[in-house]
Simulated scan of single mutants.
Amino acid sequence: MDSTKKVTKKLAGGIGGSAAWMTNIGNEFGQVLNSVLTTGEGAGLEELCQGIVTRYKNVGKDEPEVIYVDRDCCSQSGVSSVTKLFHPWRSAVRLDSFHFMRRFNCGLTTEHHPLYGTFCAKLSSCIFEWDQEDVQGLKEAKRGEWKSSHSGHEPTEEQLLATITSGEQRRHCRRRSRGVEDIRRMISGLLESVWELTDTTGLRLVNHDTMHHVWEVQQKHLECLQDPPGLKLYTKVV
């Protein structure tokens, strides 16, 4: 479930300014199941969510194992407001990793900084790790290709890794969330490494005070990034 202002800003004519937020609910196939326009974020969502619950019930589809959201993933009371919206479902609620990473933008001086893309890529690698069985399978396949084209000679590890493109790794290898403490340690290390980085004009990548606050607040959501045990995050396409 995701809310955005971008769509409502495009409303024109008599309906211009009549809505401030658009909330969408999608499924594991990337299909949008329903949308609603509201005057405020989080307002009027119960009917939307209960409509989805009813549709699942009517077609005999099991409730999802997990619901990914852009906000309200957890609560000090222990029960997320999202859980209440989708009652009586008992689905786990998790924070979408993309929205978690976007929150770090508040600690950057600008999204147009030359190092912005590099920072985002490294932040993503702090959260996700490659499935090592998949990586090993890809390496064995590339090893066979190398030997076929090099008269049976065995490649070194460096040569083997050089033959694997990022596109091939994304296509053939699955990713999963790292553990809470691994994410905490790696993001802390990333931030330590970028505090003093600047572009050629001397513009810093990071606003120290703001980023310190962002990281302090977001650490409580690291648990919300964890994939539920046994959850299959990938769909096999035949």
Rank of each mutant, 00 (worst) to 15 (best):
K9Y: 14
R102F: 10
L108F: 03
T110E: 05
T109P: 09
L233G: 04
H153S: 12
K232P: 08
Q226P: 08
L231G: 00
G167D: 13
L85N: 01
F119K: 06
C106T: 12
T235Q: 15
A43D: 13
E129N: 03
S91R: 06
H153K: 14
L138F: 02
Q159P: 02
S124D: 03
H221L: 15
P228G: 03
W130N: 07
D72L: 00
Y56R: 08
L225S: 03
N58E: 15
R178K: 15
K220G: 06
H112S: 11
C49A: 09
Q218H: 08
D209E: 12
S97F: 02
W215N: 13
T210H: 11
G179P: 02
L205D: 04
C49V: 03
G117C: 14
A43T: 12
V238I: 14
K6A: 15
T201W: 08
L108R: 03
T235K: 11
G60M: 08
G144C: 05
T83E: 10
P64I: 00
G78R: 04
D96E: 11
K84W: 06
S177L: 07
V135A: 00
V36W: 07
E157C: 06
R90M: 15
L123K: 06
L85I: 00
N27P: 10
R71A: 02
E145S: 00
H87V: 07
L123I: 03
G107Q: 04
F128E: 08
W130H: 02
E47Y: 06
I127R: 04
Q136R: 05
L231K: 01
E157A: 05
L95F: 00
K84R: 15
G230R: 09
